[in-house]
């Protein structure tokens, strides 16, 4: 039971990270290779506020999310006008720089040995509930004027400008939303593991989330969630086959990318009706 709870808690946190990538990459078409550093910002800000200043957890959450957005603004403002490939590079550099800073500010952050002794405020209910709220928010975002305009500028910036979309501003908005959301995932993470070190949040984490979004189908929120569920739990399920874990994981990803280049669901969304249909066809088969 304990293991199951822990897997589900981590998966919920992963879902929040993947949703933030869905907003910035799936909807807006920008690549943030330093996304996980916003998670670090969330984890460290909240961790320090609670352990060093004795701040109440809810207040620490709010400040940490605000910090994520603030850092998003610092990276985003000068870079968001750049070409998409440069944005990927700059966010990558930013992410690694954050890790380096956390590694070197030993007196405050504990450096490479990490920050320990966080109280375990996060439990499955909080993480799972948060994931549900984030899914709800992302769904509403996708079908709002913001989401539609993001998808429009993702396919054609020139045409997007011609219908009145302020492309720069909208990209920044999407970037800040995802930065804030990822920072929150970081808070949940830190207060679940009770210990964080900078290495956890390097670019491989960001890449992992991006893979998950592509695996699920770029442009599909439900695809991203399903994929976070599968790829997030797969390594845990495969724990018995320890050496083979990474192989099976990679092969799964490769198969999907090969046979379904647009991902599991492409741009479609899974609807309740689809799931019902699936179940009834199973029942018939049995």
């Amino acid at each position: 039971m304990g293991l199951l709870f822990s897997v589900l808690t981590f998966t919920s946190i992963t879902i929040i990270g993947v949703i933030s990538i869905f907003i910035i990459t799936g909807l807006t078409g920008l690549f943030s290779l330093g996304q996980a550093s916003f998670m670090a910002i969330g984890a460290y800000t909240s961790g320090l506020l609670v352990t060093k200043l004795g701040m109440p957890f809810p207040l620490a959450i709010i400040i940490s999310v605000a910090m994520g957005v603030l850092f998003g603004l610092i990276v985003g403002l000068p870079t968001i006008r750049l070409r998409r490939d440069y944005i990927a590079l700059v966010t990558f550099g930013f992410g690694e720089a954050i890790i380096a800073v956390l590694n070197n500010m030993t007196s405050v952050t504990g450096g490479a040995t990490g920050m320990a002794g966080l109280p375990q405020y996060t439990n499955l209910a909080l993480a799972g509930g948060s994931a549900v709220v984030c899914i709800f928010m992302a769904r509403n975002f996708k079908y709002s004027r913001f989401g539609r305009q993001c998808l429009a500028l993702k396919t054609d910036e020139l045409a997007a400008k011609s219908i009145g979309i302020n492309v720069t501003r909208l990209k920044l908005t999407a970037f800040l939303v995802s930065a804030g959301m990822t920072a929150y995932a970081g808070v949940l993470f830190g207060f679940y593991t009770t210990y964080v070190d900078p290495g956890i949040f390097n670019w491989t984490k960001s890449a992992e989330w991006i893979i998950m979004v592509f695996f699920g189908g770029i442009g599909s929120l439900t695809g991203a969630i399903v994929s976070a569920l599968i790829l997030g739990t797969l390594p845990e399920i495969l724990r018995f086959a320890s050496e083979w874990r990474i192989v099976i994981y990679s092969v799964t990803v490769l198969i999907i990318i090969n046979y379904r280049p647009k991902g599991l669901l492409g741009e479609r969304e899974l609807k309740l009706a689809d799931i019902k249909k699936l179940f009834s066809s199973w029942r018939k088969a049995l």
């Binding site: 539609r148 998808l151 429009a152 997007a160 219908i163 009145g164």
Partner: peptide, 17 residues
């Protein structure tokens, strides 16, 4: 046109700004 948005959404997108 905006691929990835339906015909209707193409029009809505132009109202959204």
């Amino acid at each position: 046109l905006f691929e990835g948005l339906s015909v209707k959404e193409n029009i809505l997108a132009a109202m959204d700004p």
